[in-house]
């Protein structure tokens, strides 16, 4: 297994280089270093000298991809692409274009993101699996049909609707929790209730439908028939046999998103005023802060790769037949 993990980590290097290159190309197709300078220097009375000075200070005065004047190896290394990318691979994110330390900001902002994402994942998982098992228990009855209709309807509704509807009903109309905001430490609990409820309810439609499909696929298998023939109750069949055997696809979906929980949610954090990494990324895009965008995309790619490796490892834990070679 160690050899397999090492091999996967080595595969990650060209993937990360590709992701970084793609981010670089896409960003600079839309924004030139001059545009970035103008954005940071403001709207009024911006002179060409101040733009050049801003670019020189942050290393954006080099050529983007190839420095014809430098010659030799420097023609590739003395470029914005190389200078801004190479340190990412040792997780040195450097300073944002506004001068803030990105590593510190990430370390501060990942906690609010996790404070929402973890409860949403755990509560959502527990509820969706329970509900899916309940539907499967009553498969091919009106309970099943009614639930599927309800789930499809819930899937069809935009996530934004849940957020605004939740804020309107729970925060504005019923005055039960603050409509938005955040506080540090344990004082954050009352600000988390609403986004967590919205996150869980918004995920019920797709989540439960997915688990229902998995359980229905398992329930037609031979081992289930055998279990029933042995006289086991339906409840035991579902919880002890079907649920365990459906764990592999469930793990595929869950473990892969675990590392990405750090990255936060773009819309939820913005609407609820949560200072997480999702809103950090959105702000960076709107402020044309390439340093942050590049760092966040790189981090996202790394975490996704880690998620995939963890998923593979988890297969071996839940299914003894799987061997990583």
């Amino acid at each position: 297994m160690t050899a397999y993990i090492v091999r996967r980590l080595l595969y990650a290097i060209p993937i990360l280089i590709g992701v970084n290159l793609l981010t670089f190309m896409l960003f600079f197709v839309v924004n030139s270093p001059d545009d970035m300078a103008r954005m940071h220097l403001g709207q009024k009375r911006v002179t060409e000298e101040s733009i050049q000075s801003w670019k020189a200070e942050r290393g954006y005065d080099r050529p983007l991809l190839y420095n014809a004047e430098a010659g030799g190896l420097a023609s590739l290394t003395d470029t914005i692409l190389f200078q801004k990318s190479v340190k990412l691979f040792v997780f040195q994110f450097g300073s944002s274009d506004a001068g803030r330390d990105i590593g510190y900001d990430i370390s501060q902002r990942m906690w609010p993101s996790l404070a929402i994402a973890v409860p949403v994942l755990l509560i959502g998982l527990a509820f969706n699996i329970s509900y899916a098992l309940f539907i499967v228990f009553f498969r091919a009855t009106y309970v099943d049909i009614g639930s599927v209709v309800l789930l499809v309807a819930m899937m069809s509704i935009s996530g934004l609707f849940y957020i605004i509807g939740g804020q309107f009903l729970i925060g504005k109309l019923w005055h039960l929790v603050p409509i938005s905001g955040y506080d540090q430490g344990l004082n954050a609990w009352k600000f988390l209730i609403l986004p967590v409820i919205v996150g869980v309810v918004g995920g019920i439609g797709a989540g439960t439908r997915w688990y229902r499909t998995l359980f229905l696929e398992e329930i037609g298998r031979d081992y289930v028939r055998t279990a029933r023939a042995k006289g086991l109750s339906e409840r035991v069949v579902l919880f002890r046999h079907v649920l365990r055997n459906a764990l592999i696809p469930i793990l595929t979906g869950v473990v892969v998103v675990l590392p990405l929980l750090f990255m936060g949610s773009l819309i939820t954090e913005s609407f609820f005023g949560i200072p997480g990494l999702g809103s950090y990324t959105i702000d960076a895009i709107s402020n044309q802060d390439f340093a942050i965008v590049r760092a966040m995309v790189f981090l996202g790619a790394v975490l996704y790769i880690i998620g995939l490796i963890l998923t593979d490892i988890s297969y071996t834990l839940v299914d003894p037949r799987v061997r990583l070679e």
């Binding site: 804020q167 925060g171 409509i179 938005s180 913005s270 609407f271 609820f272 005023g273 200072p275 809103s279």
Partner: peptide, 10 residues
């Protein structure tokens, strides 16, 4: 920090 109009107004 209040990025959206709806919570700010509420």
């Amino acid at each position: 920090l209040e990025k959206e109009d709806i919570p700010r107004w509420t």
